[in-house]
């Protein structure tokens, strides 16, 4: 299933520091995460290390989320529907630039397992990139304190 509009665009608080390094204020940061499926998510073929509960966790944190895969759009929607996770976008592998154009965020991240089809596409589209194993250990996927 796909959210028509972001339920709550957000990701967390980011500290803003003054010239002397002292924390002067905190600002709200919007994070968008694009998930590859095969080799990345536990439901992929082959299965990847990111569980659907981890996806739910970042969704509940208010991140913008969706999938970017070589799977068909209808197939991607089917996976999210099966797991009752509302996503903001489903796109084909080459469409990260469209995602960036459509959604305003402070940080854009793509998680995937292929050098050419994930990392290179992501960097070219102006996304940060995480390998699935890196992502699992990232703060994004740790429960909020």
């Amino acid at each position: 299933m796909q959210r028509d509009t972001p339920v709550q665009a957000g990701g967390g608080l980011r500290g803003k520091r003054g010239y002397d390094g002292a924390l002067v204020q905190e600002e709200y940061v919007t994070v968008l995460i694009s998930f590859d499926i095969d080799g990345t998510l536990e439901v992929g073929d082959p299965p990847g290390p990111l569980t659907m509960d981890m996806v739910r966790l970042v969704r509940d944190k208010g991140f913008l989320i969706g999938s970017c895969s070589d799977r068909t759009l209808s197939g991607q929607r089917g996976i999210w529907a099966t797991h009752e996770i509302e996503v903001d976008f489903v796109v084909s592998k080459h469409m990260l630039p469209d995602v960036k154009a459509k959604f305003e965020a402070d940080t854009y991240v793509h998680i995937g397992d292929r050098e050419d089809l994930d990392r290179q596409y992501a960097l070219k589209a102006g996304f940060d990139f995480l390998w699935p194993d890196e992502a699992v250990a990232h703060d994004y996927f740790q429960p909020a304190p």
Binding site: R71, T72, L73, S74, G75, G78, S92, K93
Partner: peptide
């Protein structure tokens, strides 16, 4: 057997070159 996914016009035409 593994991925009973249809391939409608939107699926086909949205695919990368």
């Amino acid at each position: 057997q593994h991925r009973p996914e249809e391939l409608g016009p939107e699926d086909y035409l949205a695919s990368r070159w």
